[in-house]
């Protein structure tokens, strides 16, 4: 599904990723954890192709294709979805218009017929309910005046509508209360199947109680310094990141 090899990336000439390696197979859930500033969010932005995030060296292959050769929208159409840590507000553009444009673009890319308005509405309403958002949210401006939790649920709703192959959740748990967390997790779990993979970027272990990962990676200073199964997350919860980071530095020395 995704193969990242020796990835070096920088923002405004500052090196953030310094040799990232990651292999993800279909159906797997990978959690990426790590202290602030370790490069977690940068990973998501580099994968989605955000301007200003420059890849200096290394490769990313997504479903057999060179991801770095693709524009942001091509990546999305190929099935890469990023749930934003800070979803963007777009006043004047309704959620409905926004989602229809996205769904049409993705379907067209897959060679599918565009959904007619009625079927689309039906689908959108279902997904809206699934993430516990009132139906009238579809008419409102994209994320305009939404609370933090509503924005995050809106991201999950979009994910459910677009049915991507690889979902990257960038700190989707930040700022959520337990109930909202449950809704988000239910949404993600409902989408889990053998063909779809997830990268769950998070600072805390909490989310992983709800979305059970197959692998846990610890990112520090732009590289993965330790990988393990879900027990690693619990260990981190207990001990924090300090012991790992220090050990890594010693290892380097």
């Amino acid at each position: 599904m995704l193969s990242i090899k020796d990835l070096h990336a920088s923002v405004e000439d500052k090196q953030i990723l310094k040799g990232l390696n990651l292999e993800i197979k279909p159906g797997e859930v990978h959690a990426i954890m790590g202290p602030n500033g370790s490069g977690k969010s940068t990973t998501g932005h580099v994968l989605s192709g955000r301007e200003g995030y420059n890849v200096d060296s290394g490769s990313i292959v997504f479903n057999g294709k060179d991801l770095l050769e693709m524009d942001t929208e091509e990546r999305a159409r190929e099935g890469l979805f990023l749930a934003f840590q800070y979803p963007v507000e777009i006043p004047g553009v309704s959620n409905m218009e926004f989602m229809k444009a996205a769904v049409d673009a993705v379907r067209e890319h897959r060679g599918e017929e565009p959904l007619d308005s009625v079927s689309f509405m039906k689908k959108a309403r279902e997904r809206c309910k699934a993430v516990n958002l009132p139906i009238d949210f579809l008419k409102r401006g994209v994320n305009e005046g939404f609370s933090g939790g509503e924005k995050k649920r809106n991201e999950i709703m979009q994910m459910m509508l677009l049915e991507p192959k690889l979902c990257i959740l960038d700190e989707t748990d930040s700022g959520l209360d337990i109930d909202a967390l449950q809704v988000v997790a239910d949404g993600v779990n409902a989408l889990r199947d053998s063909g779809r993979s997830f990268i769950v970027v998070t600072h805390y272990q909490r989310l992983l109680n709800y979305i059970e990962p197959d692998y846990v990676h610890v990112l520090s200073d732009g590289r993965i310094i330790k990988s393990g199964d879900k027990s690693l997350a619990l260990e981190l919860e207990e001990k924090g990141y300090g012991w790992l980071v220090t050990a890594d530095e010693e290892g380097v020395a």
């Binding site: 929208e73 553009v93 989602m99 996205a102 673009a105 677009l162």
Partner: peptide, 25 residues
């Protein structure tokens, strides 16, 4: 807005259409 452009594109919308959607918005 750059960030709004990017947001639309991560959802698969082409840059040309994104710019129309945002201008209209």
């Amino acid at each position: 807005d750059d960030t709004a452009m990017h947001y639309l594109r991560t959802r698969g919308v082409s840059a040309a259409e994104a710019s129309v959607i945002l201008s209209f918005g």
